[in-house]
Design a binder for these strands. Structure first.
Lengths: 181, 181
DNA sequence: CCTAACATGTAATCGGTTACATGATTCT
DNA sequence: AGAATCATGTAACCGATTACATGTTAGG
């Protein structure tokens, strides 16, 4: 079973969803750590259904087109729980930013500075986004959600995102300053 | 042209290399930010040759099997320089660690703690590796290499790697402490 | 009427991994 | 003789993206 399968099961553990719902979530919130398009999600849901990890119910709608609502099965739940803490394979890293940085000595300094200033602005914007989401979660739960709550998992990842953007921003600032010197 | 092409051109800007040399580098040092196996590298070198971005010379050896040595051409150099500062597309992120963290509220606390302690140890080991490489570079150049030197690019990426592992480690420690509480 | 959002699929292609395949040379 | 390293390739498969394809409902 692929990582996408577990990504979907993880979402279905939080409640019923259609393929369309999942596609939206993978485009927005989840995009911090996982990505998928509808063209990958629909076939994957079929596979999960064939494996008995999810079940589907067709829902007639009058105000919207009909839809297929997916739910996780006990078997799916079991597979998900087993996967979460299983040994984590070390994934190959691929960062285009650092691939470019690896050749940064070849380009004119002023242009390099402009490039990283642009990246810095992007990173700061992302960090602010995470900070706002974190603040909203903290407000809703009057602090850190308890670790049995699904909001805790969300909180932990948002916190990571925020700290990570801070680190990237600091490195960018160091690089800009060093190129200027 | 693919990112791998530019990754290869970037290495060839640092000197002549065989496909075998490149495969070693992508497995070891470059693995911090890019990855490739020989099965991908050999065909890619063919493509680059057909595009006139690299040239090849066959070298007869007596103490080793014969080999094909690749060099970047002026056209390849031009393509590389143009790519380095071109607009950076935002790449889809996929982190299995954070995909799992997204469902961490589902598993027993003590097992989760053990899992992240293990990750923490990995991360610390990686950070120490980067720190040692950084220290060696600093010693060799009596400080930070100048920004026109290829060692500067290497230095910048090593510094990023070190700071990044520090950030990941700090987050892991926070997560472990919070799960314990 | 037209556009946007809802909703679900398939096909072609691409980048990357795993496995298959071969052979030279050195060192133990 | 056998293992390790050097050296170069191909083929099958898989995960993911882009493009193709279709149809509904709501709202301006």
């Amino acid at each position: 079973m692929s990582k996408l399968s577990f990504a979907i099961l993880g979402q279905l553990m939080r409640g019923s969803r259609t393929g369309y719902d999942l596609a939206q979530e993978f485009r927005d919130g989840l995009s911090q750590f996982w990505h998928a398009k509808h063209s990958q999600i629909y076939p994957e849901l079929q596979k999960l259904k064939d494996l008995g990890q999810v079940k589907v119910s067709e829902v007639r709608q009058s105000s919207r087109p009909d839809k297929k609502v997916y739910n996780i099965t006990p078997a799916g739940e079991c597979a998900l729980l087993e996967w979460i803490l299983s040994p984590l394979p070390d994934a190959p890293v691929r960062s285009e930013l650092h691939l470019r940085t690896h050749s940064i000595h070849l380009v004119p300094k002023d242009q390099a500075i402009a490039f990283y200033k642009n990246e810095l602005a992007r990173t700061e914007a992302e960090r602010e986004g995470f900070e706002m989401q974190l603040a909203r979660l903290e407000a809703a739960f009057s602090g850190i959600p308890s670790s049995e709550n699904e909001a805790f998992s969300t909180y932990a990842n948002l916190k990571f995102g925020m700290e990570n953007r801070r680190q990237v921003a600091e490195w960018s600032r160091w690089l800009i300053a060093t190129l200027k010197a």
